[in-house]
Nucleic acid binder design. Structure first.
Lengths: 135, 135
DNA sequence: TTAGTATCCTATTAAATCTATAGGATAATT
DNA sequence: AATTATCCTATAGATTTAATAGGATACTAA
């Protein structure tokens, strides 16, 4: 299942991408428009800012805005930040590789073989998708 | 993340598929060979039996055995039983469709659009994989 | 028919993760 | 100086996952 964090994060990013010209939008406004718990959204936007997707402005007239062009925002990057590793098991992860402690040999492991294919399929989708595809 | 249930279930199925001629294998044997908690595995094998993948035999010389030919066991079916819906959100699920209550319009929803692509990619993998690929 | 073996089944506990909330600190604007 | 809105940490609540316990049932073989 996709986490609500990712769901909310994607919706917020899309909303900001559809806004014209980097004008800051307040958390409250996004939360209201997209039916999201405001406080929860707050922490999500914060992490998107810290990872370089969003900029922010404090005080009156402040809010969040998209830093890059929507077509420059790759879903691979967004998903890794919001949802975590794209691979479903660490032993096939490109960015978060880890050996399974219970598995003596990856090459002969059925889980490894299947999940390798799944990872490649998902990567292909995410690499070919940007925020611009959803506006 | 792939659940341990799915991981264990896949490993057990592969192990049984590599066994010759439908000879029953005991839970304890599979658990030992594949480093799996025996009691946990017990419940997994039970559900695989109830859903028509495995047969079982009680008493001495009993155990579990694969009912179908490995190449007849599609990963789509296995994954749906072990891991649940292949779709990451209910609004793009073929077999478990549900409307999002917080989302007024699926067609204009970014999450829906992206997850539709992901679902198709995953389905393509699972439909083209059978147990026979892992022996 | 009896002892032994192995699955069957339900209930419960333990652990981990996810979701949401609270409350004040900080910085910018007017 | 007052107001506004993000910043940040901590924590509580809810859900899901993983594992365990213990006895019931059915089969085999001596």
């Amino acid at each position: 299942m996709l986490s609500k964090k990712t769901k909310y994060g994607l919706k917020a990013l899309t909303f900001l991408a559809s806004q014209k010209g980097g004008v800051p939008v307040q958390i409250a406004e996004i939360a209201k428009q997209k039916n999201i718990s405001q406080k929860f959204l707050e922490s999500i936007l914060l992490s998107l800012r810290k990872t370089g997707f969003l900029g922010s402005k404090k005080g009156k007239g402040g809010g969040y805005y998209l830093i890059k062009e929507p077509k420059e925002v790759l879903m691979t990057d967004v998903m890794r930040i919001l949802e975590g590793p794209i691979a479903m098991v660490p032993c096939v992860s490109l960015n978060f590789y880890e050996k399974c402690d219970d598995c003596p040999d990856e090459k002969s492991c059925s889980v490894n073989k299947l999940m390798l294919k799944v990872r490649d399929a998902n990567l292909a989708v995410y690499r070919n998708s940007t925020l611009a595809d959803f506006i």
